[in-house]
């Protein structure tokens, strides 16, 4: 204990707080590795949040809620995929539009669901292990989505690094003309990546409305999608760094809540803006040096592919 803050509790709660951004960031990381810049993460997250909420309230099952969240995010991502991959629309503009559209649509869909509590998502039963000091809380005290978020990082890392699927995905993001010339289906691979990114963002959103808050209000994701986008850059498109980044940002937001509760003599407003300020500072530092971060970006990121050659 120091300053009235329990480190075990702090770590445990930052792990929970980071789940939505980890899931969304891993999804976006895969999308960007395939060469597509989807700025609609916030919109897909909030669609996941509302669809997940509705699905779980209607079925009474939290698990089906998460499935619904993933489907909601993927459905919105499908619009983005059609716009950018088939109609060759600008990715930046389409992504921003997707966020605005998602915010509006979710608010419409969620109208009848304000003030309801969704079915609970319980911590996994680890029995006596969960009772052990410190580790019980940090390692064995979570619900299944927390473990899923960490597993998704590991799987994304392994697939990108060691499998042929990952190699093809990276190749498409690196040089879509070359990939096309070798006979890979650039458009199909990118559409699938976009759908995966949407589903992951939707899962993250559902975690916000089903576990973190847990209820439905308009604009419930509150910028988590933008932080996820920032983390992808912060992580230099590497999965494990994205996990570290997400825990860093999650940690800061949890810390500021704890500091508030502990009665620190800093105005609340400064504390609540701190995660965003640090995001900006980190991004500026990362992109100012001509270091590795700049070199690691997928070379065709955000470029429209048209099979004309």
């Amino acid at each position: 204990m120091f300053g009235g803050i329990d480190p075990g509790l702090l770590i445990a709660s930052l792990m929970v707080a980071s789940v939505p951004i980890i899931l969304a960031a891993i999804g976006e990381l895969v999308v960007e590795r395939a060469g597509v810049l989807n700025l609609g993460v916030e919109g897909m997250m909030i669609m996941g949040a509302v669809c997940g909420f509705i699905a779980s309230v209607q079925t009474g099952s939290a698990v089906l809620g998460f499935v619904g969240g993933a489907l909601g995010g993927a459905a919105l991502a499908l619009i983005f995929a059609v716009l950018t991959q088939f109609l060759l629309a600008n990715q930046v503009a389409s992504g921003l539009a997707l966020t605005l559209f998602g915010l509006g649509l979710s608010s419409l869909l969620g109208q009848g669901f304000v003030g309801i509590r969704p079915p609970a998502t319980e911590a996994l039963p680890f029995g006596p292990l969960a009772e052990s000091p410190f580790f019980g809380r940090v390692i064995f005290g979570h619900d299944w989505v927390v473990y899923l978020s960490i597993a998704s990082v590991a799987v994304a890392w392994w697939v990108l690094k060691s499998t042929r699927l990952g190699l093809i995905l990276r190749a498409v993001g690196e040089n879509h003309d070359a990939a096309h010339a070798l006979g890979y289906k650039v458009r199909r691979i990118r559409v699938l990546a976009i759908l995966f990114g949407g589903a992951m963002a939707g899962l993250g959103g559902a975690y916000v409305s089903l576990v973190r808050v847990p209820q439905w209000t308009d604009g419930i994701t509150a910028g988590a999608g933008w932080i996820a986008l920032a983390i992808v850059v912060f992580a230099a498109w590497r999965p494990w760094r994205a996990l570290i980044g997400a825990y860093l940002f999650g940690g800061i937001s949890v810390l500021q809540l704890n500091l508030q509760a502990a009665g620190a003599r800093i105005p609340v407003e400064y504390l609540s803006m701190s995660p965003y300020l640090i995001t900006i500072v980190v991004l500026v530092i990362m992109s100012s040096g001509k270091g590795k971060a700049a070199l690691n970006a997928p070379a065709n990121l955000g470029q429209t592919f048209h099979a004309s050659r």
């Binding site: 042929r164 690196e174 070379a299």
Partner: peptide, 23 residues
């Protein structure tokens, strides 16, 4: 190819693997 067929950010083996059917 004359142009457009190598991936600069991938290594030689990965580039070769991408051009093969069953590497």
């Amino acid at each position: 190819f004359q142009h457009f067929s190598l991936f600069e950010a991938l290594n030689v083996a990965e580039n070769v693997a991408l051009g093969m059917e069953n590497p």
